[in-house]
Structure formats: C-alpha cells, structure tokens
C-alpha cells in the first residue's frame, strides 16, 4: 500500500480557504426548534474539513443542509445562505436533485443497495442520465479510486450485501464518486467500522482530497487530526431564558492550530478531554 502524506500544514495550506462551498449565517430549524445557529464557514476547495464537537451540537444537521438532504425531513428549514461556487443552493431556481448530484453524501451506516456491486456503482450514472461510453470502464474507475477494485473485480455481479462493512462503506464512496460530484459529504463514515477498515477509509480520504472537496463529521478527534486540513469545532449552547439547546460554531482553523493552539477555552476543554 502507498504511504500517504500526513495532513497538509503550514505553507502548503493557504491561511484562508478558497470556499467552494460556503455557509453564510446559516440557521437550521426543525419546526420551531433551532438546531444550528448562525454558522458561517467556508469549505476549502480540494481540502478536507472536519466538523467535530459533542453529541447534539448540530454538526450532522449542518452537514445534511449542505446538499439539501434536510429537505426530506418534515419541517426542516434553512435560513441564511449556503453557496456552492457562489450560487445559493436554496435559491428559487435551484434544483435539489442537481445539488445532490454535485454534492454527494456518504452515510454513517454503510447503505449499499440490494443489488449487485456493478449495479450499485452504475445506479448513479443511470438515474442521472449521464452519457457514458462504457459503463464497465466507469465502474472500474470508481472502484479503483475507492481502493476497492482489487477486492471485488472478480465478483462484480454478486450482491453488494455480501461484502464486509468496510468494503460496503468503500462501495458507497465509489458509488458517490461515480456520479462525478465536486464535493463529498461524509457523516461519521467510520463509526460503524473496525480500526483496520477505518484506516483504509482514512487513507482513501487523503487520495480523494486531490480531486474532491471533502467535509467530514466525526466524533473521533484523532480521526479529525489525521485526515482533516481544517477543523471546525461546534458545541451546544443552552439559551439562558428558554433553556433550548442549539448548535454553534466555536472555532474554525487549520487542524494543527485547533489541536495545538486552540484560541477558545471551550475548544481546549473539549480537545483535552475535559468535557463532551
């Protein structure tokens, strides 16, 4: 296996990210409950950005609002702007379907379709009506990029449900790559996997960073330190008067800075394991 470079630091990473995807004063509501409050955050192009923080701080909610997966939940609403290449993805003339094609998502639990490995990969290009000269090539390319090709090339026609958990998750990443998105959102992609499968996915993220903008939600701080170029720390803030909890962004910066030299006391407490 190729030995990958560690997280990019210092000079190779610009101080301010060029935000391919950006949140501007984003609030996310479920009905009258405000799950996330006033988040402004740029996600740098071809960088890995990690969202960390204790449970219930709204990081998954925020992630799901970045490709309009929240639309599928009754009563979910986004205030503020989420821009992709400068365009508001919640704009009136924007098609949520197209947003989700350009901004793919990998879920917490591997969710391969109950189809063959081949059909799992070919599904995205087919439903999107992509013009594909040779679907076989595209399937191979996607599986190769997801570091799964060698393990499955002889059983492409077999059910994807026969794969191990780690393989299933890489299949889900390959499936996402196959529709050629610009951004890949990952919602705790390793939380259901063992350490070896986790290491493979983390290696994969380092490779994918060259082509895709990646946003990853993780509970595992070591993982954030290993894979992310930049890290955003969230916490749940309790309103003094109403007692409602809402997620807020505490600090955002280069991963090395967040972990070695946090500017906010709450970040330091969380990272040093004093709470959360």
């Amino acid at each position: 296996m190729v030995i990958h470079t560690a997280v990019r630091t210092g000079a190779s990473l610009p101080d301010r990210p060029y935000g391919q995807l950006e949140c501007e004063h984003v609030d996310v509501y479920y009905g009258s409950f405000r799950a996330v409050t006033d988040v402004s955050l740029p996600f740098g192009i071809h960088e890995v950005t990690a969202l960390i923080g204790p449970s219930g701080c709204g990081k998954s909610t925020l992630l799901r609002s970045l490709n309009r997966m929240n639309d599928l939940i009754d009563g979910a609403r986004v205030d503020g702007r989420v821009t992709f290449m400068g365009e508001d993805i919640y704009g009136k003339r924007v098609d949520a379907i197209e947003v989700r094609r350009r901004i793919g998502m990998v879920f917490q639990k591997p969710n391969p379709f109950p189809k063959s490995i081949y059909d799992n990969i070919a599904y995205g290009p087919r439903v999107n009506g992509m013009r594909v000269d040779d679907m076989g090539d595209l399937v191979e390319e996607a599986l190769t990029k997801a570091a799964l090709w060698d393990e499955v090339k002889d059983k492409l026609k077999q059910s994807a449900l026969g794969l191990s958990g780690g393989q299933q998750q890489r299949l889900c990443i390959a499936r996402t790559i196959a529709v050629k998105p610009d951004v890949i959102l990952m919602d705790e992609p390793c939380s259901a996997l063992d350490p070896i499968a986790t290491a493979k996915i983390e290696d994969l993220m380092h490779e994918l960073r060259d082509e895709y903008t990646i946003v990853i939600v993780t509970h595992n701080m070591q993982q954030a330190a290993r894979v992310a170029d930049r890290t955003a720390f969230f916490t749940a803030q309790v309103d003094e008067t109403s007692g409602d909890r809402t997620g807020v962004l505490v600090e955002f910066g280069k991963t090395a800075q967040i972990f070695e030299n946090p500017q906010d006391q709450r970040t330091e407490d969380y990272i040093s394991g004093r709470f959360g």
Binding site: M69, R100, R101, K109, F113, G124
Partner: peptide, 22 residues
C-alpha cells in the same frame, strides 16, 4: 430501510426514480 432511499436520493436520483428502481 430508510437509508436505501437516502442513499439513492443523495446520488441525485429523483423520488420517483428512487421508488421505481430501488
């Protein structure tokens, strides 16, 4: 499972495609 539908929608499939194909 709901995850199957979400996986399909996250790939840019329409709700109708998700139902008919998945």
């Amino acid at each position: 499972p709901l995850e199957i539908r979400q996986g399909s929608l996250a790939l840019g499939a329409t709700p109708l495609q998700t139902t008919l194909r998945n």
